[in-house]
Deep mutational scan, measured.
Amino acid sequence: PDLGLTQLFADPNLIENLKKNPKTSEMMKDPQLVAKLIGYKQNPQAIGQDLFTDPRLMTIMATLMGVDL
């Protein structure tokens, strides 16, 4: 199971919303991170391994779920 990750990354406004959010806007200036996020739309399971190697993803996930870290 993808634990709902498919829906989190399926939002067509995902990148724009993250660019507008004060907690994630600075991160979204990294083209490699943006490319990763776009890739998760097609393969949400890929985030599982990346969560352990890129701490920014935890902040992004929390933001998408509405959790304040």
Rank of each mutant, 00 (worst) to 15 (best):
P55K: 09
N21W: 06
A46T: 13
I15H: 02
L37I: 12
Q32N: 11
M58E: 06
L69W: 03
K23L: 13
L5A: 07
K23T: 09
I47M: 09
L57T: 02
M65H: 06
D68V: 02
G48L: 15
I60M: 04
L69M: 13
T53E: 12
E26R: 06
K23W: 10
L33S: 00
Q49S: 10
I60S: 00
M28L: 06
I60E: 00
T6H: 14
I15M: 06
Q32M: 14
D68H: 05
T59H: 09
A35V: 06
Q7N: 11
K23F: 09
L8A: 08
K20Q: 12
A46Y: 09
N43H: 08
T6D: 11
L33N: 01
T53C: 07
F9Q: 01
L51Y: 08
I15K: 00
L37Q: 00
G66S: 08
N17M: 11
P22E: 08
D54Y: 02
P22F: 04
D54G: 01
D2W: 06
I15R: 01
D54L: 01
M28Y: 01
V34W: 03
D30Q: 02
D50R: 03
M61G: 02
K29L: 10
L18C: 02
P31L: 08
K23I: 12
G66L: 09
L18Y: 00
L69N: 14
K29T: 11
M65R: 10
N13A: 11
P31H: 07
T59D: 04
P12E: 09
F52Y: 12
R56T: 04
L18W: 01
L57A: 02
I47K: 03
P55R: 09
T24Y: 03
L5W: 14
T6M: 14
M28K: 00
M27N: 01
K20Y: 06
L57G: 01
M28P: 00
L14I: 10
Q45T: 12
T6K: 12
S25H: 11
M28T: 02
K20A: 13
D54K: 01
K41Q: 15
D2L: 10
Q42P: 02
R56H: 04
Q7M: 13
P31I: 07
K36R: 11
M27T: 02
P22M: 05
I15A: 02
M65G: 07
D2N: 13
K41T: 14
P22A: 08
T6I: 14
K20G: 10
P22S: 07
K36N: 04
G39R: 13
D68P: 01
P44L: 09
N21Y: 06
P55F: 08
G66N: 11
A46D: 12
K36P: 00
K29F: 04
Y40C: 02
A10H: 10
Q45R: 07
L51E: 04
K20L: 11
P22Y: 05
K19Y: 07
A62W: 12
M61I: 15
P44N: 04
A46S: 13
Q42H: 14
S25G: 06
L57V: 12
L18A: 02
L64M: 07
T63F: 15
N43I: 03
D54E: 05
N17Q: 09
P22I: 06
M58S: 07
P55I: 09
P12L: 05
K41P: 04
G48E: 15
E26T: 07
D11C: 06
M58Y: 14
I47G: 05
L18D: 00
V34I: 13
G39P: 01
A35M: 11
V34S: 03
R56M: 06
L14C: 05
I38T: 08
Q45E: 15
P31V: 08
T24W: 02
M27S: 03
M61C: 09
S25R: 13
V67G: 12
G39D: 15
M65S: 09
L51P: 04
Y40F: 11
K19I: 11
K20R: 13
L51H: 04
Q49L: 11
P31E: 10
V67W: 15
P12K: 05
I60Y: 01
L57M: 13
N13H: 12
D11P: 03
D11K: 03
D11A: 04
A62E: 14
E16T: 08
P1Q: 11
L14N: 03
Q42M: 12
L3V: 13
L8F: 10
I47S: 05
D2A: 15
K23M: 11
N17F: 15
L64H: 03
T24R: 00
M61F: 13
V34L: 11
K19P: 00
Y40M: 07
Q7D: 10
K19A: 10
A35F: 06
D30E: 03
M65L: 15
T6Y: 10
K41V: 13
L51A: 10
L14Y: 07
Q7C: 10
K36C: 04
K19Q: 13
M28H: 00
L3I: 12
L37M: 05
T53M: 10
N43Q: 06
A46L: 14
M27V: 05
Q7T: 12
